[in-house]
Design a binder for these strands. Structure first.
Lengths: 263, 263
DNA sequence: TCAAAAGTGTTTAGCATACACCCATGC
DNA sequence: GCATGGGTGTATGCTAAACACTTTTGA
């Protein structure tokens, strides 16, 4: 039974090559059709959805592990990724959570023995470009045989999740809102080229409030990290907006000079 | 040999009742004679200083563990305590760091076997009232038999510490500065009653810059969480300053209304 | 020619900064 | 009476918010 083998090897890998009782969870934000989305996944044989997670290998820096895990899940290498809080309540009982999956998949308690019972989890949030992520379980299925489904879900419509994962999303969102209001990190949620109204819509969605067009444009341009391109006619019965492109180099430069950080 | 027993029991305790590969480190700030201080400790038989740390028990929430550990170290129950970052680089090799101590104390490798080799560490920073902390190893020595000395050290004069502990202090300081500049958390570093010039000196020390007296007072009073008391004559040849008291109730109230958070 | 959405500039208000004089006290 | 440090109020400037008209385009 090949599937059984994969599960057992996966468990063995966790037990032998990963730090016990430490996990990472990812709040992956995407933006599509005016909606802020998060990536959720579901295990085999369980009805509860959860955030994608990962573990730190013995010889691996945690930050590297985070990038690796996220790459394995989304296929994306260049993303905005940042830890925002570490969660350590006892309700995070990994062992208990796995019991249901284990019995439904027909494994014995011995098969799963030696796995960490309780995890401290470092929460990361990521901003990714929606269209670049293919949320069908592909590559990562080979690495995580428990995953049955991966899906985008509107932030407002997230169901009851495993453990404290709902709280994680809320804390991530709060962090995102605060960061967004004093440094321009939203660009990574949009395609390479975007219009000012698109950017504004993104900000309005994340912050949950309407913004003034003129003031918004002024502020964005004042950072000096946007490059204006051609006009873009999408077929609407109105004036064509300009396309903008986020200039990474200027952004890094500005960050280094702490011009953007209104701390 | 009683001391040997205590060490062995301590190690056993870590192995059996604490989460493996998770630790906490504390940047404990105090303020005395115009200087910002941090609490440092030194292990038996090692010359390297380090931050006080702690571990999470199997059945304990991490935040509770943090308060417990800090109480064991400082004897303080009511302090400002907050996680600020989680550190996970591979240089944090606990096992290697203990080797020196182990050999100097005359223990064999077997005695120390089964201890975590590498820790992810959750960094907390605490603001305590300097005079309320007795930094001589008392209570906590019974709990942590490795500790030889605990001492306050000026933030600017911190020597090279274990692992990434110097970086931890820097990150904690940065967090403290940012928080201080948009919410009034400094009060916990001062005695119950304090004068406005004292508070200002504290702010100036933490932020590393001089502030205008008049604007400072205006800002502090505008929060509406200070209660003015009697005048205080400390014997100086000048006008007696007022004593102020921090009103916890009003502070909580203001926090709840998010009046103080200039996010 | 009309509706829908985008581009743009000026006025205004509020908050943070800058700044100076008088007062209490001990020597 | 003088030096030291503390208390207080006002003027100023800058940034963020408020606000309206013109332009392009497709139907």
């Amino acid at each position: 039974m090949e599937y059984r083998e994969r599960i057992l090897r996966f468990i063995e890998e966790i037990k032998t090559s990963c730090l016990p009782s430490v996990s990472m969870d990812f709040v992956v934000f995407g933006f599509h059709e005016g909606q802020l989305k998060v990536l959720l996944l579901k295990w085999q044989g369980v009805d509860t959805w959860m955030l994608p997670g990962g573990r730190v290998r013995m010889d691996e820096n945690m930050e590297d592990a985070a990038y690796r895990s996220l790459r394995e899940r989304t296929g994306l290498a260049e993303v905005f990724l940042q830890q925002f809080h570490t969660f350590g309540n006892v309700i995070r009982n990994t062992y208990y959570a796995m019991e249901e999956t284990r019995t439904k998949l027909g494994f014995s308690a011995e098969d799963f023995e030696g796995l960490p019972h309780r995890d401290i989890s470092v929460g990361f949030y990521a901003l990714v470009e929606y269209t670049k992520v293919n949320p069908t379980p592909g590559l990562e299925l080979a690495l995580d045989p428990f995953t049955e489904q991966i899906q985008w879900c509107n932030v407002e419509e997230v169901p009851q999740l495993l453990f404290d994962h709902n709280e994680m999303i809320q804390v991530a969102l709060k962090t995102l809102r605060r960061q967004l209001s004093y440094q321009p990190i939203g660009y990574t949620l949009l395609p390479d080229q975007f219009t000012m109204p698109q950017l504004q819509q993104l900000y309005e969605t994340i912050l949950g409030q309407r913004l003034d067009r003129r003031n918004f444009q002024k502020r964005m341009l004042s950072y000096g990290i946007l490059e204006r391109g051609e006009k873009f006619q999408n077929g609407g019965a109105y004036k064509a907006p300009y396309l903008y492109r986020f200039d990474r180099e200027k952004y890094q430069q500005a960050l280094a000079e702490e011009r953007l950080l209104v701390v």
